[in-house]
């Protein structure tokens, strides 16, 4: 059934594209003051965007050059705040934690999501596939704060995780997962995998249905195995969707806050401290607005440096 719907969608998209082209060129020719009209239409949204997004961004950059507690007088310190973060191994390890989390927020969900999507794609539409989709997507619907609290219970020393391990004879490795220095970060990361998996699966599944079924037919006629189909048809066809998944999950990993704030507060020690929580702590408990802003600017640069190349590679128009 999906296959029947698919071509129709494509053709209507193409039609829309064909429709749009002549109109655009026509308007371009018609008047020279055209861009000012655009401005008028865009102005309300732009004003809101400028006030709530651009302005805080600019003030953050400004604050990052000051030593300021948020209330009293501020002192200009130039690049000192940046120097302090970039030369402090403690602060750098916080950024490193964010990259470690990427393994759990990005690699695991995208890999498992691909497998899940490929498997579910082959399934006939029915109650099983609906249930599977729902179960995978539920974490996206639950507020992360609630998820953090529930996982806190799951991981506690008498929580479900340890009960299950004991039940299958692995009582020896049970521990309070979030309180153990060596397991806290992976444990928090797994919460992220759980949250992100559903999103990735759903995005990729939608992407698969968009792939021209004739490609699968051709592959099958050429004698490709299911694995071959996956490698040569599904993967290349999903490049854009994989790009979106990578972008969203990487940002989630680098800018993670809620799960960690709720479950470990960055502890034990500083073993799960990430930039998001550190910025919050610097700004609101330490009242170092300048340092918090500098950290925020660094985080923004790191996110852009990570995400832009992926966007460039996966969203090229020659797909």
């Amino acid at each position: 059934m999906t296959q029947a719907v698919d071509p129709a969608v494509r053709s209507s998209e193409e039609r829309a594209a064909v429709d749009a082209r002549p109109r655009r060129t026509a308007r371009r020719r018609s008047s020279s003051g055209r861009s000012w009209w655009h401005l008028v239409y865009v102005a309300p949204a732009l004003a809101t965007y400028a006030f709530f997004v651009i302005r805080p961004l600019v003030t953050s950059v400004q604050y990052s050059f000051y030593d300021w507690n948020g209330i009293g007088p501020a002192t200009w310190v130039g690049l000192d705040n940046y120097r302090r973060i970039l030369t402090d191994s403690g602060q750098l390890s916080i950024v490193a934690h964010a990259f470690e989390l990427m393994l759990f927020f990005t690699v695991v969900p995208v890999a498992l999501g691909l497998v899940a999507a490929a498997l579910m794609h082959g399934l006939p539409r029915g109650s099983f596939s609906t249930v599977a989709r729902t179960v995978l997507f539920i974490p996206q619907v639950i507020p992360l704060v609630a998820a953090g609290i529930v996982w806190d219970w799951v991981y506690s020393s008498d929580g479900i995780a340890n009960q299950l391990l004991s039940a299958i004879g692995l009582g020896g490795i049970t521990r309070p997962w979030l309180a153990d220095f060596s397991t806290a970060l992976p444990a928090v990361g797994l919460i992220g995998s759980w949250v992100m998996l559903g999103l990735c699966t759903l995005l990729l599944l939608t992407g698969i249905t968009r792939i021209d079924p004739s490609l699968y037919e051709a592959a099958r006629i050429d004698g490709a195995s299911r694995l071959g189909e996956f490698r040569h048809v599904t993967l290349p066809g999903l490049r854009r969707e994989i790009g979106v998944c990578l972008t969203v999950t990487m940002i989630a990993a680098l800018a993670s806050f809620d799960i960690i704030y709720i479950s470990t507060q960055g502890g034990p020690g500083r073993s799960t401290m990430v930039p998001g929580v550190e910025i919050y702590r610097l700004a609101f408990t330490q009242r170092e607005i300048g340092q918090a802003s500098a950290m925020a600017v660094i985080l923004m640069v790191v996110v852009l440096a990570t995400v832009v190349p992926i966007q460039r590679y996966t969203q090229r128009s020659d797909a």
């Binding site: 400028a50 302005r55 000051y66």
Partner: peptide, 13 residues
């Protein structure tokens, strides 16, 4: 515009 609005004066009182 935002830059102009914040006027680059030191924050705080």
């Amino acid at each position: 515009t935002s830059l102009a609005l914040t006027a680059c004066s030191a924050p705080g009182s």
